[in-house]
C-alpha cells in the first residue's frame, strides 16, 4: 500500500501533517511523537521580529472544542532559523514553515529569507489567524488581498507555497480560486472559527483578547463542508483539517477532497494521534481494497 502523496510539490511519505501552532518546532512531544514519523511538520507561525503574543487567559474550553487566542507568540525568524530549524532538518522531518506578518512587506521578507535557508520543503502562508489586530485573518478575507500576498510570496521563492485559509469568510470558494489563480501550489484549510466565551460570574469575556479561534471536533462539519466546496472549484491539492480526532475523521477529509490531512488540537488530547490516524488510514484502505490515496481523495464529492 502506498501512502505517499504530493502536496503541490511537497513530497510526503504519509499524508498526516502536524498543524501549525500545535506541535511547536517538532520536539515538544519528543519520545512520544517524533517529527520524522509524520508526513510533515508545519512549524509554529514565524514572524519577521519576535512577537510577545496576547495577554492571558489565552485558552478556554468549549463543548467539543477549545478557543485559543495565543496571538502568534514567536521568537522571530532569526531565532527560528538558528535555534529550531537545524535540529528539525537533521531529524529528517519534512518541514513546512508557517509565516505571518502585519503587512505584505513582512510576508515578502520572510519568504525571501526562508528561500535561502536549507531544509525547508514549503511555506504555509498564515492569512487566517483570528487573534491578531493586523495581518492574519484581515489579509485572508478578501480575494484580492489573498491573491496579492500569494503572488508576492511566489515571486520570492521557488518553494511550494500554500496559503492557510480562514473559515471566517462569506465565500471560501472565491478565496481559494483567487489563491489558485495567483499561483498557490496547494491550499491549507481550515484555520480556526472566530468565537468567544463569557464568564457569567465576573461578567467579563474569558479570553484576554476577548475573541479567540475555535478548534477541535466542534468545527469538523464546517471544515468538511468547506474542503468539499473548494475541491470542486480548484485543481491544486488541499491539506484538509479541522477537528480531526481519529482515523475516521481523517478519512472523511480525504473523501471530500483533501490530499493530506492536518491534525492539531487532537494532539493535545492524544499525543500519539497522528500515528494512530496513519495506522487507521492503512487499515481502512486495506479493508476497502485501495492501493493508493488517489483512490479515496474526493470519492464522496458528488
Amino acid at each position: 500500500m502506498n501512502l505517499e502523496v504530493d502536496l503541490g510539490g511537497i513530497r510526503l511519505a504519509n499524508p498526516v501533517v502536524m498543524a501549525s501552532g500545535t506541535f511547536g518546532y517538532g520536539f515538544g512531544y519528543e519520545g512520544l511523537l517524533n517529527p520524522n514519523e509524520v508526513g510533515a511538520v508545519i512549524t509554529k507561525a514565524t514572524t519577521r521580529e519576535p512577537w510577545a503574543g496576547n495577554p492571558p487567559p489565552r485558552i478556554a474550553e468549549t463543548p467539543c472544542g477549545m478557543l485559543n487566542a495565543i496571538g502568534l507568540e514567536n521568537p522571530g525568524i532569526e531565532v527560528f532559523l538558528s535555534k529550531y530549524l537545524p535540529r528539525l532538518r537533521s531529524s529528517g522531518a519534512v518541514v513546512i514553515v508557517n509565516i505571518a506578518g502585519r503587512a505584505l512587506k513582512e510576508y515578502v521578507e520572510l519568504a525571501s529569507i526562508i528561500d535561502k535557508a536549507t531544509g525547508v520543503a514549503g511555506i504555509e502562508i498564515n492569512i487566517s489567524c483570528p487573534n491578531v489586530e493586523l495581518g492574519g485573518m484581515q489579509l485572508g478575507t478578501a480575494p484580492r488581498m489573498v491573491s496579492e500576498i500569494v503572488k508576492a510570496v511566489k515571486e520570492e521563492t521557488n518553494l511550494p507555497v500554500m496559503p492557510k485559509l480562514s473559515p471566517n469568510v462569506t465565500d471560501i470558494v472565491g478565496i481559494a480560486t483567487a489563491a489558485e489563480c495567483a499561483g498557490a501550489d496547494a491550499i491549507s484549510m481550515i484555520n480556526t472559527l472566530q468565537g468567544m466565551a463569557v464568564d457569567i460570574e465576573t461578567k467579563r469575556p474569558v479570553l484576554g483578547n476577548i475573541f479567540g479561534g475555535l478548534s477541535g471536533p466542534a468545527i469538523k462539519p464546517v471544515a468538511l463542508r468547506m474542503v468539499y466546496q473548494v475541491y470542486r472549484a480548484v485543481d491544486i491539492p488541499i491539506l484538509g483539517g479541522g477537528g480531526i480526532m481519529s482515523a475516521k475523521d481523517a478519512i472523511e477529509f480525504f473523501l471530500v477532497g483533501a490530499s493530506a490531512v492536518s491534525v492539531g488540537t487532537g494532539t493535545f488530547v492524544n499525543p500519539r494521534l497522528a500515528m494512530e490516524v496513519k495506522a487507521g488510514i492503512e487499515d481502512y484502505m486495506e479493508r476497502h481494497g485501495h492501493t493508493g490515496l488517489d483512490e479515496i481523495i474526493g470519492a464522496a464529492v458528488l
Binding site: 511547536g24 515538544g28 509554529k44 510577545a52 495577554p55 492571558p56 485558552i59 478556554a60 495565543i70
Partner: peptide
C-alpha cells in the same frame, strides 16, 4: 497553576506575565 491545553510547551496557552514590566510571557 493555569488552564492548559497541551501541557508540554507547544501551544503557549498557559502564558503568565510574571512581572508587570516583563515583555515576554
Amino acid at each position: 497553576e493555569s488552564n492548559m491545553a497541551c501541557g508540554v510547551g507547544v501551544c503557549l496557552g498557559c502564558a503568565v506575565r510574571l512581572k508587570a514590566g516583563d515583555r515576554d510571557y
